[in-house]
């Protein structure tokens, strides 16, 4: 009887684990929402659709907040908009320094986008950052921006010369850095979001009540926003280095 019970428990656990694997795989797989019927069908992934939703939310919020802007006697809405812009600009500028003022709006946009994307899982959507495509795209744009900033600041010749600094022998490593930087940016964001997601799912299966809520605060909200900050911080650090 005892043995049977034990086996039974084991069985349920294993069955649960099996279910978990299936569920995880299902959640982790970014589904193709619809297919564009050209070139033999291009599947548009869920992450892109969710990105559209985020874009819509951000743009609508921006439009609502910046309606009827005035210089004095401002409305509360305008105060909110000004606070958001000033805080974001200040935050990014403190990271990138005064030389990179040109890149502040892009970085602020990315910061807000990643922040929303990381916590949108709470609203029942699948986080776009859980899709490698999105993080890879972000990382590629970052590296393009970094190298572009370097070229813009110094010109092609000096930019190329910078690869041989401080001594010529490190040139391969410097060139390699162009590829490892976006890779690490991409993988850090992707892994963090995925990892916290997997841990949360495991936790929900083991302890279904109360505890997940507490951990959700850390893994979903804090870690999500922190990773957005880290992504922008590292990008601005690289840009700062490139324009120096």
């Amino acid at each position: 009887m005892e043995l049977y019970n034990n086996n039974d428990f084991k069985f349920t656990l294993i069955k649960n684990m099996g279910n978990l694997t299936e569920k995880l795989m299902e959640e982790l797989n970014c589904e193709t929402v619809f297919t564009i019927p050209v070139f033999g069908g291009i599947g548009v992934a869920e992450s892109v659709v969710v990105t559209w939703i985020i874009m819509a939310v951000m743009v609508i919020a921006a439009i609502i907040l910046t309606r009827n802007l005035r210089v004095d006697h401002i409305s509360r809405r305008q105060a909110v908009a000004e606070t958001i812009v000033t805080k974001l600009n200040g935050m990014v500028e403190s990271m990138i320094g005064p030389e990179g003022k040109r890149y502040v709006p892009y970085l602020a946009t990315v910061l807000v986008y990643i922040g929303i994307a990381n916590i949108i899982g709470l609203f029942g959507f699948k986080s776009p950052t859980k899709d490698l495509n999105v993080t890879a795209a972000l990382a590629i744009m970052s590296i393009v921006l970094i190298e572009g900033a370097g070229i813009y600041q110094h010109g092609v010749k000096k930019w190329l010369h910078k690869f041989t600094e401080p001594i010529a022998i490190v040139t391969p490593i410097n060139i390699l850095e162009v590829f490892t930087r976006p890779l690490s940016l991409c993988m850090r964001l992707f892994g963090n979001v995925l990892g916290s997601y997997v841990i949360m799912e495991l936790l929900k299966i083991i302890v279904p009540v109360v505890v997940p809520a507490v951990f959700c605060l850390y893994f979903d909200i804090f870690d999500g926003l922190l990773q957005a900050y880290v992504f922008v911080f590292l990008t601005s650090l690289y840009i700062k280095e490139a324009v120096e």
Partner: peptide, 24 residues
């Protein structure tokens, strides 16, 4: 500290991602 922890944590995350990749 939080920034440094987030950066240091990346190592563990890389391990996790690799493990996941191996499994999948």
């Amino acid at each position: 500290l939080i920034l440094g922890c987030a950066l240091a944590e990346a190592t563990a995350i890389y391990g996790f991602v690799i493990a996941l990749m191996i499994i999948i």
